[in-house]
């Protein structure tokens, strides 16, 4: 798999506080990477490193194959766009002028493509209205518009739906999906709204206390979260043999527990297992959302 961003035992310390603790993560190219963690877990610190605002205390990272201590990292950064915390706008300028400003910073030879970006983020009819007078949703979309200048390969969005109304959230989601599908842009999205993230992400990274606890694809997460029958049995090897013989889809959780992904009644399973000499201890319906998966993974309250 090709990765657009990779870290190698990344450490960031502020005095005695360790914000990133030997963090290892990899963002696959073309993915929408959902970056999940509690407040203070280290999400924004990592994003600041990516954007060049901060430098690692130890360890390193690679952005588009260029190491963080390589001078060419500045060139790699030209191929990324970001909206970190709040959109960075020139409040005295119109939407178009904001994009022109970013074009000039990027050193692009002309202003070609600005109208297309405005159209894409739905701000083509804002005319002479200054960005300072935009609604929160419009500011967020302009922030994404600025991030889109120069046709980036990788866009970082830190809490992109923060403070948006439901309509705004839908608009931003659709925009991200469109850019990912049509332009092949890789996204790294940190969000507290797990339900929203689950509608977008194709890959997940769960961070806690400055370290990645788990990375997985959306398919793997779906498999973990899909509706199943969780069963506790006396002998897991006998259980596995019966399931294989019957051709049922299942996964073993531990040495006496497994999940069966079939619609079966208790009597059906019980009959087959009893015949093989395996007893059922408990059996219940099981379904896990991203939120409950997150809580089971990281523990704590619902403050992702």
């Amino acid at each position: 798999m090709e990765y657009i961003f990779k870290t190698n035992n990344l450490v960031k310390r502020y005095g005695k506080f360790t914000a990133l603790n030997k963090l290892n993560m990899a963002v696959p190219k073309g993915s929408i990477y959902g970056f999940v963690g509690k407040n203070g877990a280290g999400k924004t610190t990592l994003i600041r490193h990516l954007c060049g605002l901060q430098t690692p205390t130890e360890g390193s990272f690679e952005l588009m194959g260029v190491a963080s201590d390589d001078k060419k990292i500045c060139q790699s950064r030209r191929r990324i766009g970001a909206v970190v915390e709040s959109p960075a706008l020139y409040k005295d300028m119109t939407a178009k002028d904001n994009l022109k400003q970013q074009y000039m910073i990027l050193g692009l030879p002309n202003f070609e493509g600005i109208d297309e970006i405005l159209e894409l983020v739905g701000l083509s009819d804002t005319g002479k209205k200054k960005a300072g007078k935009f609604s929160l949703g419009m500011k967020q979309r302009l922030g994404i518009g600025i991030a889109l200048c120069g046709n980036p390969d990788f866009i970082i969005l830190d809490e992109p739906t923060n403070g948006l109304d439901p309509q705004g959230i839908i608009e931003i989601r659709e925009l991200i999906l469109k850019l990912n599908r049509e332009k092949g842009i890789t996204f790294l999205i940190s969000s507290h709204i797990l339900d929203e993230l689950s509608r977008l992400a194709t890959y997940y990274g769960f961070i806690d206390k400055g370290a990645i606890v788990k990375e997985m694809s959306a398919q793997e997460l779906d498999a973990q979260c899909r509706k199943s029958v969780r069963i506790k049995v006396s002998d897991i090897s006998l259980f596995s043999r019966v399931m294989d013989e019957k051709g049922y889809s299942y996964s073993v959780i531990n040495d006496n527990t497994a999940d069966i992904y079939e619609s079966l009644t208790f009597s059906e399973i019980n009959k087959d297992l009893e015949k093989a000499g395996c007893n059922i201890i408990t059996m219940e319906e099981h379904e896990e959302s991203l939120e409950s998966f997150y809580l089971s993974l990281l523990g704590g309250k619902k403050d992702a």
């Binding site: 954007c51 060049g52 605002l53 500045c74 060139q75 790699s76 950064r77 030209r78 990324i80 766009g81 970001a82 970190v84 915390e85 709040s86 959109p87 960075a88 706008l89 020139y90 409040k91 970013q102 910073i105 990027l106 050193g107 600025i146 120069g150």
Partner: peptide
């Protein structure tokens, strides 16, 4: 404060 400095740093400016 408003993050516009960040836009410059991400544009590959040293």
């Amino acid at each position: 404060k408003d993050g516009t400095l960040r836009n410059k740093m991400m544009a590959g400016v040293t």
